[in-house]
């Protein structure tokens, strides 16, 4: 039973980290990007490539993966968000990020191959450690640190406060002289780096696999919707709840029904509390 608990928390931490990346992008642009899960996938695939194929030490490989993720996040803003938001059609950003996500996923599939490849060990540790194995504790620890750092960033730094101001009211922030376009690009870069970090830390759990991106986009979104859009605490709680539910349902009724169970949780929460557990109620436009 303890094994199921730890596995669930580890995979839930990855979902929660993806939900955090969603939140960072949502705060400055009010856009839920389909590429979010693919940012984590890039972290895992490039991490494996740097360490296994190029033979780098894990530390420079980590920073290089973060740079790749940040670049991919920034590219999302430049290609799929900037022009589309300027034209202000409600649905277009969904189409453009979906297109970009498809391109990234299929590009990686062509270059890296469609088979999952093993992710290297990051810390020297025996394979006999059981539940104390790094593949469980790395994603959990990383996600907690990530959430704490984001909270500090939002409360203590000027840029963090600008993010908060933009998420409250982008027009007012702009009228006050905030460079909203530059801030949005920065937030996408940060989200990319966070996603890549999560994918790198959880690489031993998910393997370096091109299809992880789509799964994470869906499950990270479910964690976010369950916890409440825009809330970082909600992202953590939603991710943990989803991961635990997945692990226990896999243990009790078999692993074939993962998506069905996840979507069941999403529908249940949306029926009972549409704004999510920690979300703020949206005002209906009239």
């Amino acid at each position: 039973m303890l094994g199921v608990l730890v596995t669930g928390l580890a995979i839930g931490a990855l979902y929660a980290a993806t939900a955090l990346a969603y939140n960072v992008m949502y705060s400055t642009s009010k856009v839920l990007s389909v590429t979010t899960g693919h940012l984590a996938m890039l972290g895992g695939v490039f991490g494996a490539w740097f360490v296994t194929e190029l033979g780098w030490h894990p530390v420079p490989a980590l920073f290089a993966s973060l740079a790749v993720g940040a670049f991919a996040g920034w590219l999302t803003d430049v290609i799929a968000i900037r022009r589309v938001l300027a034209r202000s059609d409600e649905h277009l950003w969904l189409l453009s990020t979906l297109a970009l996500a498809t391109i990234v996923q299929q590009g990686v599939a062509l270059w890296w191959g469609t088979e999952p490849k093993p992710f290297p060990r990051l810390l020297p540790q025996d394979f006999t450690a059981g539940l104390a194995d790094q593949k469980y504790w790395l994603p959990i620890g990383t996600t907690i640190v990530m959430a704490a750092a984001l909270e500090l960033f939002y409360r203590r730094t000027l840029y963090g406060k600008l993010f908060v101001a933009m998420s409250e009211d982008a027009f007012a922030a702009r009228a006050r002289g905030v460079e909203t376009d530059r801030l949005r690009a920065i937030s996408y870069g940060i989200a990319g780096a966070l996603g890549a970090l999560a994918g790198f830390a959880a690489g031993q759990l998910t393997f370096a696999f091109f299809a992880v991106g789509l799964t994470l986009t869906l499950n990270g979104f479910i964690a976010l919707a369950v916890g409440g859009l825009g809330s970082n605490v909600g992202a953590l709680v939603g991710g943990a709840a989803l991961g635990l539910l997945n692990a226990f349902s896999a243990n009790l009724i078999g692993g074939e029904y993962q998506n069905t169970v996840s979507v069941g949780l999403l529908m249940l929460v949306l029926l009972l509390k549409p704004e999510g557990l920690f979300g703020s109620r949206r005002v209906r436009p009239v």
Binding site: L98, T102, I103
Partner: peptide
């Protein structure tokens, strides 16, 4: 990949 590029 081609469909993605075309859509974008």
């Amino acid at each position: 990949l081609f469909y993605g590029l075309l859509l974008l």
